[in-house]
Write a protein that binds this DNA or RNA. Structure first.
Lengths: 159, 159
DNA sequence: GCAGGGATTGACGTGTACGTTAATATACGT
DNA sequence: ACGTATATTAACGTACACGTCAATCCCTGC
């Protein structure tokens, strides 16, 4: 039997800032800083402003961290990437509901911008992949040389 | 006829700091800073300390820049990578001259360290490649969706 | 009902990687 | 030989991305 409404039954994953910090390896300060910079915004608050993070929020947080650590993006660059992702999500919602309350011309412009930004990112990623790949191969070759050198040393020692 | 001593005849490429800056897109300040931090050291000076950069120096400079920009390495991390490369070069020289004036035990230790550091770097590069690759594919998919969305819009407009 | 753990908002401090300016010296083209 | 472009060191300034208190405020378990 398929649990048809598993998503509906699943406990709404809401985490406090400290839990998010532990799960992601970040600090609470960092999370507040990112929010201060407009990169994230916890989906809800409680009481006197206690932040509550949903699974979506978590995904966004880890995405930011990945962009930062993997690609060395500054928060400004991360912001640009996230904006095009937002447009993408927004666009899918609009497509479903079909009744766009956003003027077609404006939506078209947003789309074009998102496409351009996205293409630039892909191009950048391809460049990074190529260069890192080349570097990796180079280091692998170095690895072989070093190991050969070590064997030679060991042979000498046993001669 | 093969120019047997092309390297010897070739004009020794020595550049002044400003030329290196223009060629690499860095600033003179950055080059001096890197030197201050022990990452580079121009192969020669002239007069009252005017820096002169050889082709080897240039290679090292661009290497540092690549590590920084492509992989988001800090200068501290770059330093580690460069050190293992230095050992590699040093090791090849030693292999050629065979008469190592460095004690075998010490050389062995350096080699082991270089190998370990190198392997770690390769592993790190592989992780980066995998993640960036996944991210790239994701963005490529996004690209398709956005373009489809735009065609749909255009079709609507012409209906 | 209160100690303790975790949350909040300021506010100020810090490390990295340079930018900028100043005063001065040297190299290069004509 | 001389002006100008480029170099030098030294010192201070700055942007980014947080770290680190401090004072206060909930909420929970015993």
């Amino acid at each position: 039997m398929i649990t048809r409404n598993a998503a509906a039954e699943a406990p709404p994953v809401v985490l406090r800032i400290g839990e998010v910090a532990k799960l992601t390896g970040l600090t609470t300060r960092t999370l507040r800083y990112w929010e201060e910079q407009g990169l994230i915004s916890p989906s809800s608050y409680r009481g006197r402003g206690e932040r509550l993070y949903s699974a979506t929020d978590m995904a966004r947080v880890t995405r930011i961290r990945d962009l930062q650590e993997l690609l060395g993006f500054s928060l400004a660059e991360v912001r640009v990437v996230l904006e095009t992702e937002d447009i993408d999500v927004l666009d899918r919602v609009r497509s479903e509901y079909r009744a766009g309350n956003v003027p077609a011309a404006r939506r078209r412009r947003l789309l074009d911008e998102a496409i351009e930004a996205n293409d630039k990112l892909v191009a950048r990623l391809d460049v990074a992949l190529a260069r890192i790949g080349a570097f990796r191969d180079e280091r692998a070759a170095t690895s072989s040389r070093l190991r050969e050198s070590r064997s030679a040393m060991d042979d000498d020692a046993n001669a």
